[in-house]
Design a protein around this nucleic acid. Structure first.
Lengths: 223, 223
DNA sequence: TTGTCGGCCGATCGCCGACAA
DNA sequence: TTGTCGGCGATCGGCCGACAA
């Protein structure tokens, strides 16, 4: 899902030509998780570095880690000889994904302490509630509904969406803390809600870059 | 630890001669976890099967899976040519381990529903409480103490041991449910308490053979 | 002797409006 | 508009003796 990966990530379409940069791949694979091929292969265009290999994108598979929900892509590359015909720039790179993207409405929010602390609730920004979520019946008092959202694995999460308080605001209550615990979200992580063209509601997460500092305290609301 | 593996398991001492049975090793490794070498190499003595390899036990290491606490052993085997001298039967097999075993007192109990259900407590059989656990001060009312026990990894678990109720019985209360949850114990699994010759208290677990049936319900005390 | 149950008390969870940034 | 807090009600964990097997 593009919404989870972030707006900076652009994937080359199939059958386009890219340069494979072996040294970067090796360094990346050393340092972190196994999802090395993805961003590197996306570094389209020639660079002033040795050992560039012109390749043809044979296939792209969008995947997600079943445990951490980390999204990555597997890109099959087939080397192309310099003399071979049919050199084609990945021309659609600027237009295609952007065009596809505004067919679906999406909204991202970075979790606050209050969202992540086990107080149990999530403050829904008005824009998100009004454009992404199903319409609320504002005649009810208070207006409440159950919201269902699918994650990257197709698993459905159930949230109680209520519009209450003075002044009025949108909140997710029941179901939210379960989601936070299962996904192991902390303040600083981001959550993405999006509605597909079929009107289906989806939810994704993007984790903050973890500060690998020792004395990091897991803030739990003190009473 | 022998107490966890059960009384049926006997390990060959170092430098003894055993027969390695390659086919069984291969079948076992296919079916289950990685702890293949252990029991197979323990099948001491010639069998009416082809492809037996006479080996010398070069070393035995007693290990435990850090996640499941499953105990197993790694046995280094060195093949011995049929003509080589010094053929020595593992003569000490009957006497040695048995003798070593009654130096330390141990007690095993299969967990009942009440022990495993999150009611929070564990019924300690009188024999276990009186011979394995530290002595209680029966003058107190009720007699209580804190019991510390090490598991196979050296991790220390803390239990509240109390002698109460009418009629009186020994119970583990505080600390027990944490232990059950962390070790993922269910009714039917067994727990082993033992006291080493240094008076140190240890705790081990032996899981029941899981029935891989679909509709197995996780019984939780209904209210 | 010890397995299971109902009772019950206290801790925690999580929903709420009141503020204020 | 929305982040954080104190309050407080409902739920649940877990300790207890009463039985009975």
């Amino acid at each position: 899902w593009h919404a989870c990966a972030g707006g900076m990530v652009q994937m080359p379409p199939a059958r386009s030509r890219v340069y494979y940069f072996p040294q970067g791949h090796a360094e990346h694979a050393n340092g972190g998780g196994g999802s090395a091929a993805a961003e590197l292969a996306a570094a389209v265009g020639p660079r002033p570095l040795p050992a560039l290999v012109l390749c043809c994108v044979a296939g792209v598979r969008f995947l997600a880690d079943p445990e951490t929900d980390e999204v990555f892509a597997k890109i099959r590359l087939v080397p192309v000889g310099p003399g071979e015909a049919g050199f084609r720039e990945p021309e659609g790179l600027g237009g295609d994904p952007a065009e596809a993207r505004d067919k679906l409405a999406s909204f991202a929010k970075t979790l606050t302490q209050s969202d992540a602390n086990n107080g149990g609730g999530f403050s829904v920004p008005r824009y998100c509630a009004e454009t992404i979520f199903p319409k609320l019946d504002y005649r009810a008092d208070p207006p409440v509904q159950t919201v269902l959202a699918k994650d990257v694995h197709g698993e459905v999460w159930k949230f109680r969406h209520i519009y209450r308080g003075t002044p009025r605001r949108h909140l997710l209550t029941t179901g939210w803390s379960t989601f936070v615990n299962q996904k192991k979200l902390v303040a600083g992580d981001s959550i993405v809600f999006l509605r597909t063209e079929h009107g289906e509601l989806c939810v994704g997460i993007r984790r903050a870059k973890r500060v690998t500092c020792g004395g990091m305290e897991r803030t739990r609301r003190t009473r």
